[in-house]
């Protein structure tokens, strides 16, 4: 892993957008304002010294009652040329579950964002096909939300029940 200080580079460019940062043995994390995510992603993708060409994972966390903003969307980027990684996080409130899509920058974001919508109910603005990906259309609710009842049962799709 290279020693590039990715946090510093993001801070230099988007100082006011960075809410928090964290670095543990080269495992670098930056928490950003929700509105800046596309801008910052475009920067780390196009900047030659960062060259994040791979969106490895895009997921979400539900911090119900533990953080003022209920959700956090987490992005993991990797540079296959420079062999370094960065994690971006954006807090998302329950009232405003809408995040800008990364589909135009990374094709892999398309399905990841559908998965986050499916299981957490966070919508992505500008996504070309914002539909459920893992569960079926008849499913009500978003099961990885902490307030989804553990014993809640959905109607079976099929001839019986």
């Amino acid at each position: 892993m290279s020693d590039t200080n990715i946090i510093q580079k993001i801070k230099d460019r988007f100082g006011d957008a960075v809410l928090e940062d964290h670095n543990f043995r080269g495992d670098q994390t930056v928490t950003l304002q929700k509105e800046k995510i596309v801008e910052v992603t475009r920067f780390i993708k196009d900047e030659p010294s960062l060259d994040m060409d791979y969106l490895m994972d895009l997921t979400a966390v539900d911090y119900m009652d533990r953080k003022p903003q209920r959700f956090e969307v987490v992005y993991h980027f990797y540079s296959s040329t420079l062999n370094h990684r960065v994690r971006l996080k954006i807090p998302v409130s329950e009232e405003d579950c809408l995040v800008d899509t990364l589909d135009s920058l990374y094709k892999s974001a398309n399905w990841f964002e559908r998965e986050v919508w499916d299981l957490y109910g966070i919508k992505f603005k500008g996504h070309p096909n914002m539909k459920r990906i893992l569960l079926y259309e008849e499913f009500k609710g978003h099961p990885l939300r902490k307030d989804y009842p553990i014993n809640k049962r959905q109607p079976l799709i099929g001839p019986m029940n």
Binding site: P143, R153, L156, N161
Partner: peptide, 13 residues
């Protein structure tokens, strides 16, 4: 797997 994804016994089907 007492959760939303798994059928609770195949005898339901």
């Amino acid at each position: 797997f007492n959760n939303y994804a798994i059928v609770q016994g195949v005898d339901r089907v």
